[in-house]
Amino acid sequence: MSQYQDLAFEGMWKNNPALVQLLGLCPLLAVTATVINGLGLGLATTAVLIGSNITVSLVRNIVRSEIRIPVFVMIIAAFVTIIQLLMNAFTYELYLALGIFIPLIVTNCAIIGRAEAFASKNSVLPAAFDGLMMGAGFTAVLMLLGGMREVLGSGTLLAGADRLFGPVATNWPIQIFSAEQPFLLAILPPGAFIGMGLLIAAKNMLDNRAATKQATATEKVTRIRVTAES
């Protein structure tokens, strides 16, 4: 079980694909103008990650290592096509909103990175779980960034939720304040970069705080030992 806990911690925090590995920044920065767009792309990426990790793990002993990269790419491309067609069928408006960034999931380095670094060396179950957790970490960052930019930029939250969840979600969007003149910087690409920088800074700050706490804890332990010896 502890292996799975490790995998979850790696994906969500310590080795988060967006905040630490800085992979897949292009879709991350481009589609996070709203929470729902972020969630949609995050879910699509997660689905592709799980599928490709499972498949790569299954074929890892059959594929020779010289040709593994083309094989991985084809597996990923197949899953992206599946997701794209599914979104086209069931969430057509979101499909239109995300546009080119759905097929571009193929180029998300986080996916081929996990296929190469983890799935090709582990059995199916851990590989699937790793895909799920890496995808969840990526989705969480997409949603957080999307939320920040949406609230600052247009004063709403969850706008367009019905595009993803269907007519049930028509009442979900929250109007936090009405902006006669939207704060364009937050919606435009520079806002995505600044927001991303702030998120990374916040994560590093939390990590540093935890590290200093741990350091003081160990320091106390040594001090006790010194007094005991003397």
């Binding site: 003149q181 939207p182 704060f183 364009l184 910087l185 937050a186």
Partner: peptide, 10 residues
Amino acid sequence: VVLLISFPVA
């Protein structure tokens, strides 16, 4: 520039 990009009209 932050203001000019965000609120070009105002």
